[in-house]
Design a protein around this nucleic acid. Sequence first.
DNA 1: GTGAAAGCGCTAACAT
DNA 2: ATGTTAGCGCTTTCAC
Lengths: 322, 322
Amino acid sequence: MPTRVTIKSIARDLGISHMTVSRALSNHPNVQKETREAVLKRAEELGYVRSAAATAMRGDRMRIVGLLLPNIVNEFYARFADTMAMACEEAALHLTIHLTRDDIDAETQALRRLQELQARAVVMVPTPGQSQAGRPHLQAMRVLQLIRERDIGQPVPTVQVDDAGAIRDAVLHLAAAGHRRIGYIGATPALSSGRVRLAAYRTGLAAAGLSEEAPLVITGAPTAETGRAGLHRLLESATATVCGGFEISNGALIALLSAGQRPDGPFGFVGYGDPSFYSWIGAGVSTVSIPVDALAHCAVELLQEDAPAPERHAFTARFVAR
Amino acid sequence: MPTRVTIKSIARDLGISHMTVSRALSNHPNVQKETREAVLKRAEELGYVRSAAATAMRGDRMRIVGLLLPNIVNEFYARFADTMAMACEEAALHLTIHLTRDDIDAETQALRRLQELQARAVVMVPTPGQSQAGRPHLQAMRVLQLIRERDIGQPVPTVQVDDAGAIRDAVLHLAAAGHRRIGYIGATPALSSGRVRLAAYRTGLAAAGLSEEAPLVITGAPTAETGRAGLHRLLESATATVCGGFEISNGALIALLSAGQRPDGPFGFVGYGDPSFYSWIGAGVSTVSIPVDALAHCAVELLQEDAPAPERHAFTARFVAR
DNA sequence: GTGAAAGCGCTAACAT
DNA sequence: ATGTTAGCGCTTTCAC
C-alpha cells in the first residue's frame, strides 16, 4: 500500500518546508508564484487530498451532517433526503444517513456516533418514545428536529408540517361536492401526526355540518396496506375519503383504481402527499400537498447558520383540488 | 461553549495520567479495577466520546462508507440505501450519501471528498459518461461498483443484476397466454441497462416465434412518464407489454389501472421491480422481481472484507407470474 | 517569502 | 499498574 500523500511528503519531494506547501495549497499570499505552481502541480500529480481528520483535530468540526430518519423508503423521507443531499453537496457537506426504525436506542446510538465524528449538525425525526437511559450529551453539535418534536434537554429549532388546514379543506371540498358520508384513513392516534390529522378531519366534518360516524374512521399503521384495506371497507360504507399519510394514500389510491374507480370518480378521493403521478391519473388526484422541498431547504439553511434560533418553522400543506 | 471532553481533561480531573484513562476506556488489562471504574464513571458523566479524527490520524481509516447514487427517490435505490444503511448501522459504519444525478463531475467531486474523510469504502453506481479530466486517485479506498460497470483504472468488485432471463421469461409467459402483439416499454438504449433489457425482450420474442414490430417497442427516459405514455400507445397497438424499469413500470401500471383495466388481463402486463403493492392489486401483478436486499447485503459483506476479489457478483432477477 | 515549533486527541512503545 | 514520549497531518504563531 502506497503511503499517504501529505504536505510533508510533497515538501520532501520538492525539497522545501511543509509549511510552504501548506501555504501554497491554501492560497496564502506569501508564496512565490513558481513555488506555488510547482506545489500545485505535484499535488495534482500525486493525488493529494487534505486530511479532514487533521483539520478536525485543529478544532474545526467535520463537514458532516447527520440525518436520522425512521426509514428512507417512505416517499416523503426519500424526497426529503434527496433534496437535502443535493443541498449538502452544494455546501460541501457530507450527509450521513442513520435509520432509527423509530427505535430510541438506535437514535441514541446514532447521535453518539455522530459526535465521535464531530459532525457539525444533525437533522432528526425524533422517535416517539421517551428515553429511559440518560439523554445523550449533544455537546457542540447543532440539532434540528424534523416533523416531530421531543424535549431533548435543550431548545432546538424545529421544522414542522402544518397540515391541519389542508385536511379540513379537503373534507369541506368533498362536502361541497355533495358527499355526506366522508371517511378517513390515517395513522394510529398513537403517533402525534396521527392525532393531529384525525382532529383536522373532525374539524372539517364539524365545519361542514356533518357528524362523525365511527365506522368511517379507519386508523392503523402508516402503511400502504392500511390504505388498501381501509379503502375496501369505505367503498361499502362511505361515498368519499380523505387520507392521512403518504403510504396510506398510495395504498388507498391503488385499491381505488383496481376496483375500477377513477379518482375523480363518483367515489370522492383525497390523497396525502403529491408524487408526480397523482397529477396525471385521469383528471388528476386531489390531494394534501406537502412542501417537501421547502422543508428540506429550510433545514439546510438552518444548518448553515452559526446559531440558529430555537424556533418552530412550520410549513403549511395545501389542499389541491384536481 | 464548553471545552471538549478528552482523555486528558478526564485525566486532569482525576489527577492521573491520560494514558491510564486511555487504557481504562479501551479495556486494556493493565488498569486497576477501581481506577478503571472511576474513569468510566467520570467519562459517562461528562459525556466523553472518543474523537474519530484523532483515531483516524493514527492510521485507522474513518468508519465511513460512501454511497454514490444517481438519486434516492427511485424505489430501487431507496430500498438499496435502506438495507445498506441498516447493515452499516449494525457494523458501526457511517453511510454517507452522495447524489450524482448521473453527472460525472459530481461523481468525481464526491469521490474526492470521500478521500478527504478517509472513508473506508465507496459503493457507486458509476455515471454513464467517460471522464474527460483525469481519473480520481482512489488511494486506499475500497471501491465497489453497483448495477453498472465502468473502467476506473483498477479492477474492482461489482454487484450486478442479471435480468435478461427474467425478461425473456416474461415474454414467453405472455406468448403462452396467447398474446401475439407483445410490446416493450423501457429505458433508452443509451443506457447499458436499456440495451440489455431490450435485447432480452427480443430474445424472448424470437424464442416465442414472434417477430418484432417497431411500433411496439417504446424507449425513453427511465421515468414514470415514459411508462404512462408508452402504455397509452400500446393499449391501441398491442395486447400485452413487458416493462423494463422501475419507474416506467409504475407509470405504466398506474396508466393501465386508470384506463379501467386490471393487471391480470385481458391486456397482458408484466412490470419491473416488486414493490409490495404489486402483490395485492387484483390477483397480483406479474413482474420481473429484483432481489434488492440480496444486492445490498452482498455489497456490505464485500465492504467488510479486507481485500475483496475484483469479481462480478450477479444476482438473477426472477419472473414472477401472478 | 520561507521555515521551525507547538499543539489539536489519541495510542504504541518504552520507561518506571 | 501507571507514567512519559513521540508522532499521525495540519495550521497558527513566531522567527528569520
